[in-house]
Design a binder for these strands. Structure first.
Lengths: 171, 171
DNA sequence: TTTTGTTATGTTATATTATAACATTATATC
DNA sequence: GATATAATGTTATAATATAACATAACAAAA
């Protein structure tokens, strides 16, 4: 039987962030920032200092971060930071797909593949707080098929699975 | 190929609420209230006047309703209604599975099968606002399988699919 | 290279959603 | 009826998000 996610290696990569030292996070951030620069350049979107900084802050970890957490940090850096400062930057980043919003947490997390289409699906650990974005074709097809059967045309999908990640179960 | 949802008739029933006159809503409410009474009785939970009333209000339509909308209505009925009044009732109803919270809308909607287990999945129409709860086994299995592969143990699933319902597409 | 339009940010205020904490009332059980 | 527990009343505030208008930065045209 075909496994949903394209291959198991891909899934293992996606959830590597659940493990301490499971990945090189510095490289993770660098890669995300490079991708952002490229994407903005291609789209003619302006990745200003503020927006770049907010994206960096979101990428500081794989734990989704709240808008007011970001604001607190920004306030130390620009004395003028106010809620609209951070919400506008978040809106910009969301629109480009550079970040996702986790509805069940009112929080934001970096997207590792902003180029491709975005049926964003998350595994979110209640213990360590990390959110792993996955892209499972079987799951996608199940939703698409279901919508087709119902005559429902999809605009946006929210799949947020909360639980305990393998690393936190070990403890 | 097996269709995910147990059978197509079941799906058609689930989404009947998208159609005007697609179902008898009075009966819909009655049935929900009866189910609630029975469930509470079996569980030894107290369905007080307040809780019963909030459940009725939630069931007034298939559009998820916000806590403060409910509060506005309650205020006309009990002069003392305050936010905790409604949030406590909602918490009680959520705990029993009599209602669901739609994370992407910060709103609440009645559950038509509070007895059975609850991998709640919703199709939510952006135009008419109605939310259809569905229960698709293929989708459930996709999520379970994925979590298994990842070694992730699931506590809660949120599946919210936004788009346009068949009725609203027709217009 | 000034002008001009547009986009981004600053700033103040407020809306929306939700919870904390403690007092009182109602209900159930002894 | 006394007592314990659960539910609700009440006041205050926390947490999340947006409206509305002013200013500044930038980009493209004149």
């Amino acid at each position: 039987m075909q496994v949903g996610i394209q291959n198991r290696r891909q899934l293992v990569e996606s959830i590597a962030l659940f493990k301490k030292d499971g990945h090189n996070h510095g490289r993770c951030i660098d890669s995300a920032m490079n991708t952002a620069v490229n994407l903005c350049s291609r789209r003619g979107a302006r990745l200003t200092d503020l927006r770049r900084r907010v994206l960096e802050l979101v990428w500081q970890s794989h734990q989704p971060v709240g808008a007011y957490e970001l604001l607190d940090i920004l306030k130390d850096e620009r004395r003028n930071a106010q809620p609209p400062t951070v919400y506008r930057a978040l809106d910009f980043l969301l629109e480009l797909g550079l970040i996702h919003r986790i509805e069940s947490l009112n929080a934001y997390v970096g997207c590792n593949s902003p180029d491709t289409s975005h049926p964003s699906q998350f595994l979110i650990c209640r213990d360590c707080g990390a959110a792993a974005e996955i892209s499972d074709t079987r799951l996608d097809r199940a939703i698409s098929g279901l919508a087709d059967d119902a005559g429902f045309s999809i605009v946006r999908r929210t799949v947020e699975v909360e639980g305990q990640c393998p690393n936190c179960q070990a403890g």
